[in-house]
């Protein structure tokens, strides 16, 4: 606050006290209107989120209280009393696993290359811009890509409309997000850190491994984990890839099951929502609650991971 006075030399001003500042602010009518508008925006955003949460919780209360455990452990059924989301939970978790296995290494690797190795050429810049644009491509388009490449093209390996195809498609969907957040985190590392390490004789690989990556890790991890949450919530690509509305697994082995029919939590929500609303309304809401809890816990992991890593780095 004291920095204000030297900004305007030559003017004699009252000593800056809290009171004088407040008085100044009260004269600023436009600022107040603007502040009011901003507050209004916050209120609307909050009201929307609150409405969604409250409606979903109210709608789901009957199902979640009456058959909580059955709902989590049963598979889909035509009987509202027996229907559950176990298959959806399984599908969503496998998808999260595949996204972690595929998109994390590839995305973080690409970001390191772009930030640390790639020369600043027009080609590099073109790639960076393309990656940024890809992050804005609608998810249904990735669904079509997945249908063409993983379901039809690589059907022999993925088994066609399978959880593998879904996982790979969603991995590609979140790849640009991971690359962008990881790049930002790496770019935010002060170059003095690198220069210091180079000065001590470290090779480029040593600098990246021992200095850049550890310092950038909180940001990279946050972005990556949040991208899993994004992948878990997507329904549109799964519709195109062909998640099944109902399936049984038979005596199939784990690999056959991976290559066979699948579903995921957002698909459960969509399927339940299409059934006659009077008997089934609570199920779609209850499945939504399960998705929300899953996504919130993943976000929580991201926050804790970030806090722990940041604390260790002493920043």
């Amino acid at each position: 606050m004291t920095a204000l006075s030297p900004d305007r030399p030559g003017k004699t001003r009252l000593p800056l006290t809290l009171e004088s500042l407040k008085r100044q602010r009260s004269k600023d009518g436009f600022g107040q209107v603007f502040q009011g508008l901003l507050l209004f925006s916050v209120a609307i955003a909050f009201a929307m989120v609150a409405t969604v949460l409250i409606t979903v919780l109210i709608d789901s209360s009957e199902v979640l209280r009456g058959q909580f455990w059955d709902f989590l452990t049963n598979k889909s059924s035509s009987d509202p009393a027996k229907a559950g989301v176990a298959q959806g939970i399984r599908g969503s978790l496998i998808i999260a696993g595949i996204v972690t296995l595929v998109a994390f290494p590839v995305g973080i690797g690409a970001a390191i290359y772009l930030e640390e190795y790639a020369a600043d050429t027009p080609l590099t810049r073109l790639i960076e811009v393309t990656v940024r644009n890809l992050a804005g491509v609608p998810s249904i388009v990735y669904g079509l890509l997945g249908l063409a490449v993983f379901v039809q093209g690589l059907g022999g390996i993925t088994g066609g409309s399978s959880v593998i195809s879904a996982g790979l498609t969603l991995a590609i969907l979140v790849l640009p997000i991971i690359i962008i957040t990881a790049s930002e985190s790496i770019r935010a590392i002060p170059s003095s850190l690198r220069e210091g390490a180079y000065g001590l004789g470290a090779t480029q690989w040593e600098v990246i491994r021992t200095q850049v990556l550890p310092a950038a890790m909180p940001g990279i991890l946050t972005g990556a984990v949040l991208s899993i949450a994004r992948a878990l919530g997507e329904a549109a690509p799964l519709l195109v890839i062909g998640a099944a509305a109902f399936y049984s697994t038979g005596f199939q082995g784990q690999l056959d099951q991976m290559q066979g029919a699948f579903t995921a939590l957002p698909m459960n929500v969509a399927t339940f929502a299409k059934l006659p609303a009077d008997v089934w309304a609570g199920h779609a809401a209850a499945a939504s609650v399960v998705v929300l809890v899953l996504v919130f816990s993943i976000n929580l992991v991201a926050i804790i991971a970030r806090a722990r890593l940041t604390k260790k780095l002493g920043r």
Binding site: R90, T100, L213, V301
Partner: peptide, 23 residues
């Protein structure tokens, strides 16, 4: 530091796979 970050990642992954197997 870098090891613990890697370990965290591995834990996450293991957790996802274990739960999915339960499912």
């Amino acid at each position: 530091q870098s090891i613990s970050a890697g370990r965290l990642l591995a834990c996450l992954l293991a957790l996802a796979l274990v739960i999915s197997a339960c499912g």
